[in-house]
Simulated assay, not measured.
Amino acid sequence: MATPGPVHEALAELELVDHHCHGAVTADLAPDEFASLLTEGEAWPGVSPFDSPVGVAVRRHCAPLLDLPRHAPPADYVARRSALGWQDVNRRFLTAAGAAAFFVDTGYTAHPLTSPAELAAASGAVACEVVRLEQVAEAVAARGVEPDAYAAAFRTAAEEAVRRPGVVAVKSVAAYRTGFALDPTRPADAEVTEAARQWLAAGGRLADPVLIRHLLWTAVGLGLPLQLHTGFGDADLRLHLADPALLTDWLRLTSGTVPVLLLHCWPYHRQAAQLAAVFEQVYLDVGLALHHTGPARCRAVLEEALEVTPFRKMLYSSDAYGVAEFHHLGALCFRQGLADLLQDRVDADELSLRDALRIAAWTGRDNARRLYGPLVSAPARDPGGRPTRKV
């Protein structure tokens, strides 16, 4: 760990833009419910999620915000959380994240979660919406549509969704549904109609390769930044098919269109970095991996991701879901890990302090602000605490 210096001070004060996260639960959690939300897998008998890097990090870095000692035992932690109530717990962790804005994916609601407006009220920050396009497609199917009308109906529904107030981006979870080993070309109308006929007859979630290709090409035409889940996820994912390098041909075909944000990326963050280095429209983050590796290892993930990534191409996200601890822990890991590696480079005379402070501000806030536009009216501060223009 680097000796704390000016970069640590600057990142501690910087109001972040969390460009991809989810809501926090709106219910008090039983011990097993809380434990299950600490993991992308399951809470198996005899294997507690508290006995993992993220579980240890929660007890070390989140317990003090609940007025508990560091490393509080799991039973004490969960009991204190319940005693405070979910509203107070959410407020404490969301405000501790120190974010000026959260961009909230509203498309996954396996638990009752805060809406963007509720998250904004709890955090004192601005909360914008990220529209998940698979959910839009499935809503079109649920309403009923003829196969030859599906493509137009989906396009219309997606255009209506992105016109909602506060929407800043769209997202696809193609990595979960089919993986990225897809034909990169835009499917023909006849292909879409036939695929829609089969899907609408069978029902279920959207997982047809032709319709996923159609969804991705439709997303390009919407004009908003497109977020793509890549890499690390839950057991529903075939990890080798979530390697963003599989998107290379599609990225070549869509060059010059909309920004493509590769989310999470680990363990393919080096592949994502290469794509960001060679394709103008490609950006990345290492959200989710930050709090799952915890402060002990998040620097290594950030350092590997930044080996070749242009500094204007890396963004911050937490990908926090369910427990508000992850909104806070993601921000804490990002600040500490990035500050450590930048301060060490300053101390070794590999970076000037001025450059290090610019990289910190770009990555934590300004790259998102540049990509997503003049988002909101929350005040922002430069490293060092000087007020600057709106987020």
Rank of each mutant, 00 (worst) to 15 (best):
residue 336 Q to I: 12
residue 353 L to A: 08
residue 344 D to W: 02
residue 277 A to I: 00
residue 337 G to R: 00
residue 272 A to L: 04
residue 316 Y to E: 08
residue 314 M to Y: 10
residue 312 R to V: 00
residue 285 D to T: 04
residue 288 L to R: 09
residue 298 C to W: 07
residue 308 V to E: 12
residue 323 V to K: 04
residue 289 A to F: 05
residue 338 L to I: 07
residue 284 L to M: 15
residue 330 G to F: 02
residue 335 R to A: 02
residue 286 V to C: 13
residue 299 R to H: 08
residue 277 A to W: 05
residue 315 L to T: 15
residue 328 H to S: 07
residue 312 R to A: 03
residue 324 A to K: 09
residue 287 G to R: 00
residue 283 Y to V: 00
residue 333 C to F: 06
residue 306 L to W: 14
residue 345 R to L: 00
residue 275 L to G: 10
residue 314 M to H: 13
residue 293 T to R: 08
residue 334 F to E: 01
residue 279 F to G: 02
residue 343 Q to E: 14
residue 300 A to Y: 07
residue 281 Q to F: 00
residue 290 L to Q: 12
residue 350 E to G: 10
residue 278 V to S: 13
residue 341 L to R: 14
residue 355 D to L: 02
residue 326 F to K: 10
residue 314 M to I: 12
residue 356 A to W: 11
residue 333 C to E: 03
residue 353 L to P: 01
residue 333 C to N: 13
residue 340 D to I: 04
residue 343 Q to D: 06
residue 299 R to L: 09
residue 291 H to W: 09
residue 356 A to V: 06
residue 322 G to D: 09
residue 344 D to I: 01
residue 335 R to Q: 05
residue 333 C to W: 07
residue 288 L to M: 13
residue 283 Y to L: 06
residue 287 G to K: 02
residue 339 A to G: 09
residue 315 L to K: 13
residue 336 Q to C: 02
